[in-house]
Design a protein around this nucleic acid. Sequence first.
DNA 1: CTGAAAGCGCTTACAG
DNA 2: CTGAAAGCGCTTACAG
Lengths: 334, 334
Amino acid sequence: MKSKITLKELSKLLNVSVSTVSKALHDSPEISPKTAERVKELAKLHNYRPNPVAVNLKKSKTGTIGVVIPNISNSFFARVLSGIEAQAQQHDQQIITYISNESLDREKQICDLLTSGMVDGVLIAVSEETQKKAEYEHLFALLDYDIPVVVYDRINLNLPADKVGVDDEKSFYDATRFFRAKGLERIGIASAIHHVGIGKLRISGYQKAMDELPVFTARSSSEGTLKSKIEKLLITEKVEALLCTDFESAIITTRVAYEQNIKIPEDLKIIGYINKDIAEYLTPSLSYIEQHPSELGVKAVEVLNQRISGDISAGKFEEKIIATTMVHLESSKF
Amino acid sequence: MKSKITLKELSKLLNVSVSTVSKALHDSPEISPKTAERVKELAKLHNYRPNPVAVNLKKSKTGTIGVVIPNISNSFFARVLSGIEAQAQQHDQQIITYISNESLDREKQICDLLTSGMVDGVLIAVSEETQKKAEYEHLFALLDYDIPVVVYDRINLNLPADKVGVDDEKSFYDATRFFRAKGLERIGIASAIHHVGIGKLRISGYQKAMDELPVFTARSSSEGTLKSKIEKLLITEKVEALLCTDFESAIITTRVAYEQNIKIPEDLKIIGYINKDIAEYLTPSLSYIEQHPSELGVKAVEVLNQRISGDISAGKFEEKIIATTMVHLESSKF
DNA sequence: CTGAAAGCGCTTACAG
DNA sequence: CTGAAAGCGCTTACAG
């Protein structure tokens, strides 16, 4: 089998022209059935595969999409990637993965690579640092190059691009309402990500659902660690339910409860943004917001491909929201 | 900025030939400083970027490596990918990610794609199904195409390729010895992966370290579930320490201990193959074998690149083993 | 020092 | 029905 055979070599063996071979292989009606068959037979015999690089050059496209992931160890993003890969495969697209590690610098480098034209389009969730510093020039540069870009998950930023995200605000609005419907009033929220878009939205959902009720918010600040704030909420304020916007705040909360001998869910109910595969194995298991990351990935690829093919007209931007699901495990049992 | 400018367009604007522009941009000594500067200036102005597809075609390489991952939701593989990405970036290589989802069929499809020449080399961890069925033809086909292949992590298979893995056997040999050194004799092992290579190696490490001592093994079989086997070990056999070869057996063990009111680590010590980010957050936290996945990824890319560049001679195969580390958390406290 | 030409491997409009 | 030619965007040996 060894090294790859080319069209030219095939054509030589068959004593026909390269064009004839190419057409035959593409089932062109121009070619006589007889030649077509001869060609295909030999191609099969030699296990001919068109050189994708050459095909791409000819077609001025790459069949490839670039995916920028802030942190692959976060299983949320791992599962998004899984959805992306599955959907890309449906479209015969390859995905090139870049990991920014939540770093603005790395993200800039990646965007620079991306502008060189290795990919037909880009799927990106911006890094935390990028959001904090609100530095988006490199993203605008990408857009300037006319590369189709879809922003996923972290969509709460001002960028003229298509977006596919999660309904962060509604999820915690609903979770808060859930507790209220059960008659609770002392409901708090803890967050280690209050400075980034998704954190803000989750907090805002909570606040809206609290209406006139007093809100209790724990976040790290100059006056103390997140842990001390959570302790205050649990011990001094005696909240009966706590929403956690992220893994860190959820884990700290369970620690504090453990240390203070606060029983979950008897004394304290918890619902948090925490990934399924961890939530289920904690003791007690932690109720969480399921974000359907894989579907988010699938949707992101769909939108990107609509953009690439021109189905979405320039100047208009799609914004898709994936609905979340509340999953009740032990920590929110009544 | 808009759509990309080409060498030809640049050359037209400058009234020089395409070759001159190309050489100038590559700092060829053939070109006069004056022209070189003119060219570079205009190139910069128009933000010229060579079309990577064309460059690749010309150079008959792709600058890309294919990575096949069995299951990205497993944070072990996510972290391997992270190492791969980081190292590839050092070499200006892109990585194309494929996820087999532990499916043999999908793995075959992927190998088929890979043979078409999209990548300069392949990093693969074979799927569980592939191992169970011991079907390796598609991998041999890859090798037949002369595509450099490095097998990572799941290296206990008979394939003439470079391998980078983890010292599974030694890790559990050492863990067993650790318990014995503490004076324990009733040491058991639980496994949900006794049928795959890494599972066998871990069990074998345990057995070797037990010498003449009686071994206690829990694995699912026709006579009962893994859980019932573990219950037997903990209740009837009263093992004092249990090694778990995988996440599932570790989690079942903690459940059983919880249900039976067996105190960890007082009544039962545990060391398991479980990922750091979960191990640390269980209550009690679970001692684990750190496999250094990121370094494994880095090493895999290094070996692959040596193979690609011909630094490893044909017919000889590299086999690198990354040393594991025992991390003692609460579950193995004495 | 500069440029014309060939070629990487393919596709396709055009001519015969 | 078949083939010669142009071209995708680049690099580089060769000629001038």
